[in-house]
């Protein structure tokens, strides 16, 4: 699975380059995010602008990534398409994450 990462001060932006986070790649997604995040940074912005589709396995993998970061670090989401955001809304997971309209907005916002 391909990702692009940009480090800016204590924020790590991870852009998911895959078009789908689904049952076929959810485990791989979780493993990759753990590896990319390691023990730092404080804030991780997951840019989903290129992601066209996310199923419940993909949603579970994003939740797992947030749990991996723990209470002292933050996973924020950005760039959700209408389709992806609908899955977050229906499951009410939109209430659990800080969601920014774009990754740029997330990078310029102060820590939530």
């Amino acid at each position: 699975m391909d990702f692009e990462t940009v480090r800016q001060d204590d924020i790590l932006k991870i852009t998911v380059l895959a078009e789908r986070i689904d049952a076929a790649c959810a485990v791989q997604f979780k493993d990759c995010i753990r590896e990319i995040c390691g023990n730092e940074p404080k804030r991780v912005v997951l840019d989903l602008q290129k992601v066209d589709f996310l199923d419940s396995s993909g949603l579970g993998a994003v939740v797992a990534a947030m749990k991996f970061l723990g209470k002292d670090r933050q996973l924020e989401l950005a760039g959700l398409s209408d389709k992806v955001s609908r899955v977050f809304r229906l499951t009410r997971m939109d209430s659990v994450f800080t969601i920014h309209p774009t990754a740029d907005a997330a990078m310029s916002a102060s820590a939530a």
Partner: peptide, 13 residues
Amino acid sequence: LSDLPEGGFGWFL
């Protein structure tokens, strides 16, 4: 945070 569900969303959707 540690108790958030990672599955079981499918039938709900």
